[in-house]
Design a protein around this nucleic acid. Structure first.
Lengths: 189, 189
DNA sequence: CGGTATCCTTTGCGATACTG
DNA sequence: CAGTATCGCAAAGGATACCG
């Protein structure tokens, strides 16, 4: 059953934590915000969480969970200064959130749409006014496609110049406008 | 001993939660940000937390905990839309955070300093450019003093006109410039 | 006052099996 | 595939006593 215990504190912060303060809750929200739609999406994205956990957390969430995005952004900004834990894996959503959070106003190819595949999940990345919108699933007419894994994408976001090497090594496959891909990878630079 | 378990996820959000995702952690930060300085401050502010809990959480926090303020603000904004739990108490810091978060640009008495005492804890509230800074302890030359309890202050912030009644009932004691007190109570209106 | 040590209960939550 | 049911345990954390 879902966790019901409360801090018994009328403070808005405590009220928020009554709902989303349990372990895993915010990470479930993270996945939902980036478009996880089926149970198996969550299971793959959060392999450390049991099925019961996931159903419990899902039950605790209302439709207002979408409004938690500012909380996640603030948490991410703070957490990026924390050391990366040992033997940690980088999930697809981690990297996409990092990309979106790092996006600066890059006026060059505005309102561009990309297809990004990380392992076997596919996203549509749409740049608009230097902001990125991320949605699950295939785009209609992407300017370019990028197929890789979370770690490689993370590496490329930090070192965009390594793209050619990665393509040569086969760790990245691209289609479409390669220069658009280069632009995409530079948003975090 | 402090909690050490990790999500094992390199995502910045997960890294943040590795540090401040445990129960009570964010509420401890809330208190520290509003100036709790001694252990007894925490014990009074968080009566539901055991002493061991508090020491554990304190050990997990670095000096960067101060930078968690945006996270708390975002959580509070979201949590204020959640229903108030039954039999919940309103802590002093809850109300002060609500006050600070609600503060609009009230240009009337700028750069004013108040002394606010809630039960037996004392704060200095300084308004500057419509923003409030809240610090623990006595101010040097307050324009006015307000002595009440968290629930009454909360009520007055929602219904500033009730001030006279509250004074007459003895649930509020003021000193100094009474019109300044009225201004203070109107920041959330 | 500002904690630590010890004990013990609770429960979160992980594992596995099962169902529509 | 999308969960529910049952079981069991480690561990979070509450209570109390103690200490510098």
């Amino acid at each position: 059953m879902p966790t019901t215990r409360s801090y018994g504190d009328a403070c808005p912060i405590a009220r928020a934590l009554d709902v989303v303060g349990e372990r895993w809750a915010m990470l479930v929200v993270r996945e939902l915000l980036l478009g996880a739609q089926r149970f198996s999406d969550l299971r793959r994205a959060l392999p450390g969480a049991s099925t019961n956990m996931l159903t419990d957390r899902l039950r605790e969430l209302t439709e207002r969970g979408r409004d938690l995005e500012p909380v996640l952004d603030a948490l991410g900004a703070w957490g990026s200064l924390q050391p990366r834990p040992d033997r940690s894996s980088l999930t697809a959503t981690s990297v996409l959130l990092f990309l979106r959070g790092s996006a600066r106003a890059h006026p060059d190819p505005p309102n561009q749409t990309y297809r990004v595949q990380l392992d076997d999940r596919i996203w549509t990345l749409s740049s608009r006014d230097g902001q990125f919108e991320i949605d699950p699933g295939d785009p209609h007419a992407p300017v370019a496609s990028l197929h890789t894994d979370p770690d490689t994408l993370n590496e490329l976001l930090h070192h965009p110049a390594d793209l050619d090497t990665a393509i040569a090594e086969g760790s990245v496959r691209t289609e479409g406008d390669l220069s658009a891909v280069r632009h995409l990878l530079r948003v975090a630079a």
